[in-house]
Computed example of a mutant assay.
Amino acid sequence: MTTRVTANGIDIAYESFGPPTGRPLLLIMGLGAQLIHWDEEFCELLVEQGHHVVRFDNRDAGLSTHFHDAGVPGPGAPAPYLLDDMADDAAALMDALGWPAAHVAGASMGGMIAQTLAIRHPGRVLSMTSIMSTPGPDVAPPAEAAVSVLMAAPPPDRESVQAQAVRTWSVIGSPGYELDRERITTMAGLAYDRCFDPAGTSRQLAAIMASGDRTERLAGVAVPTLVLHGEADLLVPVAGGHATAAAVPGARLVTYPGMGHDLPRPVWSDIVTEITKLTSA
């Protein structure tokens, strides 16, 4: 069941899995993605390993507050908010949940938010898992093919959105694993039905670009850190994972051959095992 709370001056939609007695684990999604993109089965696997999992919609995504009045940031225009604000959203959500601190895992832009959270609110983060992410927008530039699909014009209707999702993930997904067209199509339809706001995605992208590089600040992160990355990622190449792990003292890096900018089902078990080793240490 989706719940909405007011946190950091906005409404944040979230869902929880598992008993409140489990180890608190906050999952942060990526650019333009919604809480449903953390697959329920994946969340339940984490619950089986003793976690109390919360997934949520970032600002400008899903059922959380959208900054419609800000429009689409033009070239040279200031971003309406930064990753700092999105990290503060996560900390405020933890307040609303009654969590003094939590284990945090973020994917792509979510990894950037997790890194920023660990920098800005170190006492709130028990451990950090940064997945297919990077310490800065210029550290691991995307391949041209990935940029092309990411910047494609927004489709006009639900069916077109689903078709575009298949095209996108056929480029930036995992070449080492079979493309699950049915799952991608279904998920794109569900996301469209919850909320379709391409302008919100543009504002999130502006936040990424305006927030700069975190490499120097990550040197001060003292929490146990896990970095997971696909070796075949075209959107955030694996150099981003290596740079993140190098920036955080003591970070552990795990890379996956054949994995692109997604979480293919066959690696779920290993990823859950790696996260569990970190959170139960």
Rank of each mutant, 00 (worst) to 15 (best):
L278R: 07
L46W: 12
H229R: 02
A79I: 09
P122N: 08
A219K: 15
F17I: 11
R23H: 15
A13F: 00
I172H: 10
V171Q: 01
A143V: 06
Q34E: 10
A77T: 04
L150N: 10
S127I: 06
P78G: 10
L205F: 13
G32S: 08
Q164F: 14
T134N: 12
A251D: 05
P142F: 00
S280C: 06
D60G: 03
A153Q: 13
L218D: 02
W38G: 03
A246C: 06
M112E: 09
S64A: 11
Y177F: 15
L263C: 12
H66R: 14
I12Y: 04
G18Y: 03
G18Q: 00
E178M: 14
H51M: 11
V125Q: 05
G176Y: 12
V139M: 12
P175S: 09
T129Q: 09
R4P: 05
G111F: 07
D270Y: 13
A243M: 05
T276I: 07
T244M: 09
G136P: 03
L150I: 00
Y81N: 03
G250K: 02
I36F: 07
P100Q: 09
V227P: 02
G98N: 12
P141E: 10
M151I: 11
I10M: 00
A281L: 06
G240N: 07
G173N: 08
S174I: 10
L253V: 09
M109R: 06
I28S: 01
L179K: 05
A118N: 07
S64G: 09
H51W: 07
G189S: 08
P80N: 13
Y177S: 14
P80K: 09
D233A: 01
G111E: 01
L31W: 05
Q49I: 11
T225S: 13
L46N: 08
M29H: 06
R158G: 09
S211M: 14
G74T: 02
T2D: 14
A87S: 12
D60L: 03
M1C: 13
E216S: 10
G260D: 03
